[in-house]
Amino acid sequence: MTKATVLTGITTTGTPHLGNYVGAIRPAIAASKDANVSPFYFLADYHALIKCQDPEKVRQSSLEIAATWLALGLDTSNAVFYRQSDVPEITELAWMLTCVTAKGLMNRAHAYKAAVAENEQGGENDPDKGITMGLFSYPILMAADILIFNAHKVPVGKDQIQHIEMARDIAGRFNHIYGEHFVIPDAVVTENAATLAGLDGRKMSKSYNNTIPLFEPEKKLRKLINKIKTNSLEPGEPKDPDGCTLFGIYQAFARPSEVDEVRKLYADGIAWGEMKKLLFEYINDHIAPARERYEALLQAPEHIENELQEGAKKAREISVPFMKQLREAVGISRIGA
Rank of each mutant, 00 (worst) to 15 (best):
Q160Y: 09
I50A: 14
K229C: 07
D75K: 12
S319D: 10
G23V: 03
M323K: 00
A4T: 06
I65V: 12
R83L: 04
D54G: 05
W95K: 12
Y41V: 14
V87D: 00
K313N: 02
K203E: 08
I335L: 15
T68R: 02
E180M: 05
D159C: 09
K219C: 01
E218Y: 00
K206G: 12
Q309L: 14
V156A: 11
Q121C: 07
A35V: 14
I90M: 01
Q299S: 14
A193P: 02
L326E: 00
I335G: 07
V100T: 05
E118S: 04
G122M: 02
P213K: 10
E305V: 03
N78C: 03
G273R: 12
D86M: 13
K227Q: 13
L246I: 01
I10C: 04
R59H: 06
E295G: 03
A28W: 07
E218R: 12
A30N: 13
V87K: 00
D242Y: 13
E281D: 10
A48Q: 05
F247S: 02
M133P: 03
L196D: 07
G104V: 03
L43M: 06
I170L: 09
F322S: 00
K313E: 07
A30L: 15
Y21Q: 02
R222T: 02
I304H: 04
F182A: 02
G201M: 12
T11L: 03
A94W: 00
E191P: 11
A300Q: 15
E118R: 12
K57T: 15
D186C: 10
T68Y: 06
K227S: 09
T13V: 05
A288G: 14
Y282A: 04
L278M: 05
R26E: 08
G236Y: 02
K227F: 12
P238Q: 04
Y282D: 05
R202K: 15
G134P: 03
D54P: 08
S38L: 12
K239F: 00
T76G: 07
V188T: 09
F280K: 08
S333H: 15
I228G: 03
L18P: 04
V154T: 09
P238H: 09
M166Y: 11
G23P: 08
L7M: 11
E124R: 06
I335W: 08
E191H: 08
P39W: 06
T5F: 00
I249W: 05
G201I: 04
A271V: 08
E305M: 04
Q309D: 05
I170K: 11
L278G: 01
T132H: 08
S61T: 05
G122N: 13
R263F: 00
F280H: 13
D285G: 15
M96D: 00
N119E: 09
E165Q: 12
K220E: 14
L147M: 12
